[in-house]
Every structure is written in structure tokens, then in C-alpha cells.
């Protein structure tokens, strides 16, 4: 029974990673703070979002994930009950800015969420 479930899940995780490409968590130690505009800001999404829906987001972000490979991490959401993920978290396209912005943030307290295994 349990095995059956797991069989179904592993390809799913791999598939989910495929959708969540180009993670910034590639350089060994990475902090979610790098994705925040100021202390307390919801982090932006450092990968493509090709699929719609919370279900898809939660498949990695419900528990958090660290596969030990490039792009194989996902940090755990503190609020899985929130249904509309993209209301606060934005995917970012590579594009020139419309205008520069001189906002100076209250810097996030440095905090590492992922430490890669040695």
C-alpha cells in the first residue's frame, strides 16, 4: 500500500522539479532573504511557474524539499492553508526595469533556510 503511493509520488516530484526550473538555490548556501524586498516581504518565486494552482505549489512547498541537486530545493511554506499563492508571491521575468527605484529596505535578518549536505 505504502509502496504503491510512493511509486506514484516519486515521478511526481521529478516532474514538479521540471516545472520549477532555474532555482536560485544553486550555490551551496542560500537564503530566502535574497528573495525578499525588505524584512518581512513575501519572497519572490525564483523559478518558472508553468502550472496553475496551490496544489502544484504545495507539492514541493508543503513540506520543503532538498534533493541535494541543483534546483532541488524548495522551502517550506509557513501557511499551507492559504489558497491563492500568487496573490503574494511573484514569479520574476528577466527584463529591463521600467524605471530605477531608490527604495532602501529594512534589511531582512540573515537567516539560512537551506544548508546543503556536505
Amino acid at each position: 500500500m505504502r509502496n504503491q503511493n510512493r511509486k506514484g509520488l516519486i515521478p511526481f516530484i521529478v516532474l514538479s522539479l521540471f516545472f520549477a526550473q532555474g532555482s536560485v538555490f544553486a550555490s551551496g548556501k542560500q537564503s530566502v532573504n535574497d528573495l525578499q524586498a525588505y524584512r518581512g516581504a513575501p519572497p519572490t518565486i525564483p523559478h518558472n511557474v508553468r502550472e496553475l494552482g496551490r496544489k502544484k505549489c504545495l507539492s514541493c512547498h508543503f513540506r520543503g524539499l532538498d534533493l541535494g541537486i541543483k534546483g532541488g530545493e524548495a522551502y517550506k511554506t509557513p501557511h499551507p492553508e492559504r489558497a491563492n499563492c500568487l496573490q503574494c508571491h511573484l514569479p520574476q521575468k528577466e527584463t529591463e526595469l521600467f524605471k530605477e527605484n531608490k527604495f532602501v529596505p529594512l534589511k531582512p535578518k540573515k537567516k539560512t533556510f537551506f544548508e546543503k549536505k556536505d
Partner: peptide, 28 residues
């Protein structure tokens, strides 16, 4: 839901890092 399921579902894949709680993720 936190630690429990991970160990079962992802076994050795389980993350070493810990998720932020709602408050500390805001850090604010």
C-alpha cells in the same frame, strides 16, 4: 503535519533545513 510526513514520504530525501514559522518568515 510538519516533520512527520517528510520522513515517511521522502525518506532519505528529507531536508535538513527547517521551514520558517509564519512569524519568523516575516521576521518582523
Amino acid at each position: 503535519a510538519a516533520a512527520a510526513a517528510l520522513a515517511i514520504l521522502f525518506g532519505q530525501l528529507a531536508t535538513k533545513g527547517h521551514a520558517a514559522s509564519a512569524e519568523s518568515s516575516n521576521g518582523l
